[in-house]
């Protein structure tokens, strides 16, 4: 697939795909993408893709791998909203 500005689209992704930098996923919104890797590895692979997390994505947390959760909320694109923590 051709990367646009070095970023993937949702259609580019598949389970097991290697992801070098999670910033490559920054153009995909409102979708959970769970990346996994072994402690000894530098490279993540896609472990789960879905609009909501579920039992399948929960299993990733029990496998002894490192899990990197990616979720870009499209509400962040709206300029008039900010978090008053």
């Amino acid at each position: 697939m051709a990367l646009v500005n070095n970023k993937y689209t949702l259609e580019d992704l598949y389970i097991g795909m290697e992801i070098i930098d999670k910033d490559q996923l920054s153009g995909i919104y409102d979708t959970w993408i769970m990346l996994v890797k072994k402690n000894s590895s530098d490279v993540y692979t896609v472990g789960f893709i879905g609009k909501e997390t579920n039992e399948e994505s929960d299993k990733l947390f029990m496998q002894g791998s490192v899990v990197c959760p990616v979720y870009n909320d499209s509400i962040e694109l709206e300029g008039d909203i900010y978090y008053e923590e």
Partner: peptide, 16 residues
């Protein structure tokens, strides 16, 4: 008993 969480985004909050 959770696995390590990698590269998760956090916010620095000196008011917290």
């Amino acid at each position: 008993e959770l696995t390590e969480i990698g590269s998760v985004n956090v916010k620095i909050d000196t008011g917290c």
